[in-house]
Write a protein that binds this DNA or RNA. Structure first.
Lengths: 255, 255
DNA sequence: CCATAGAACATATCAGATAGGTGTGAGGGG
DNA sequence: CCCCTCACACCTATCTGATATGTTCTATGG
């Protein structure tokens, strides 16, 4: 079996007690326990594995770090719905440690969003479309406020609703894996926005175009036109990418 | 800022000391420490944050779970290159808890691989192409052995080299995010293969076709023909998907 | 029948102690 | 003078035991 152990690493060495417990717990959780179920108490597990409660504690903490468990004080640890924040941290780590990491991310994002946009057109629920529409309205509102010059707060909201729009489409695709990954991607993307704001306003002149592009995508999804949705999304992302590229280039030059 | 805390969950409650330390450590690591660097000793961190060593220990364990640190006995914890195994566990959790999770995964995989195949054609290094070729050869060898009927071991190797082939392409794409995600995807895919083998031989008759399809992809990548690489990959995955679909359908019927 | 105060249980965190793995530097041999 | 070796200092692994605090269940009194 491929290494997927807690604390898997380059060196080979005997597993610590805590790691052993963590791995066995992981299997039990993935195999037998649905999200929402709670695991036995620390003392219970401790006696079952014949280790001290503290060792169990460390093992449980590892699984918390992995995003498999949630601990509330005074109650038993609960199995958690997979949470994208753990993956998000990993993505941030990749993006930060690689000069072209952000571009890699955007490159993949384009492919994923072309897909999710088409899928959303094919099978978005009414609620899904409404969520996209809501983001759309937020965007228009903040765009109007941000239009008249200096309004960093509205600009931030504009960007946020931009991300919301795309996230809503990912959700509406009905593909949980896509939704999960996209949600995680939002974190490094948000960060890059914060960084970029130090230099200048991102796409200051492009807000109207962005809103229009979004509208076109939403219309295609509403109409259930898969091909149009894919094309509209692709066009939108292509122009966005160019913006970011030129922006980051100037940003690097400024730094 | 969006919640990306260790142990972030539905409930709101004051962070425990360990969580606080974990979050602050995470920031320090992501901001200041490159992979390979080691963090201060537990005692050191404990005095700095004014908590007991045990609390630091728990915090560190959470980060180990997150895949950000690696602990070796007797030495300081080391910052780790992002490791896909953590994400892989999350994917397994998604796939297992959702009846159509595997299809979602395959759906996304198709989009990602069409992309990575094209990227590989555009910018694969010589070493990258060699890795793909190596998987190709493994595949031919095991296909030959598996051809004459009952040889489950060769069949397993065939499937493994199949995955290797695709993974090598993901690597050759030069996109670290794609490589990372694809590596993680392999785990649930491998699992589904193991499950499927219980019923019948997967694509027993399709091995020759698979090898040929792979060869076509490799040729396109070698030739640097981006469009051909994308098309070949897409065609290959499409037929694979149909196989898996019909296979799982019969598997479900049998169960 | 319902509300509420404890009792019972669970986690959070600390202190202190022992065991055993790692790395380093002093000193001896070549 | 360089290299090897071994003891010691440092570090993590794990345990025991104790206190604090939050949660859940239950029995009792209104």
């Amino acid at each position: 079996m491929a290494r997927s152990d807690v604390n898997a690493g380059p060196e080979d060495y005997p597993l610590t007690a805590a790691e052993r417990v963590a791995n066995e717990l992981t299997e039990i959780i993935l195999r037998d326990l649905a999200p929402g179920a709670s695991i036995p108490s620390e003392a219970d597990i401790a006696s079952r594995f014949e280790v001290s409660r503290l060792t169990v504690r460390e093992a449980v903490k590892m699984l918390v770090g992995r995003g498999l468990l949630h601990i509330g004080r005074g109650r038993r640890a609960v199995v958690r719905e997979p949470d994208s924040s753990v993956f998000a941290a990993l993505l941030v780590s990749i993006v930060r440690n690689d000069p072209k990491g952000l571009f890699d991310l955007i490159e993949l994002r384009m492919a994923m969003e072309s897909l999710s946009s088409g899928l959303a057109a094919k099978r978005a629920s009414r609620a899904g479309v409404q969520a996209i529409d809501a983001a759309m309205r937020d965007m228009r509102a903040s765009a109007a406020e941000a239009a008249d010059g200096e309004n960093p707060e509205a600009e931030a909201r504009f960007h946020e609703s931009d991300l919301q729009f795309h996230e809503a489409i990912a959700m509406a695709s009905g593909n949980r894996v896509i939704a999960f990954i996209f949600e995680a991607m939002a974190k490094p993307l948000r960060e890059s926005f914060v960084m970029s704001r130090r230099g200048q306003t991102l796409r200051g002149a492009g807000r109207v175009e962005t809103v229009e592009a979004h509208q076109a995508i939403l219309d295609a999804i509403r109409a259930g036109d898969q091909r149009a949705a894919v094309d509209a999304m692709r066009a939108h992302l292509k122009s966005t990418e160019l913006d970011i590229r030129s922006h980051l280039a100037s940003g690097v030059a400024a730094a």
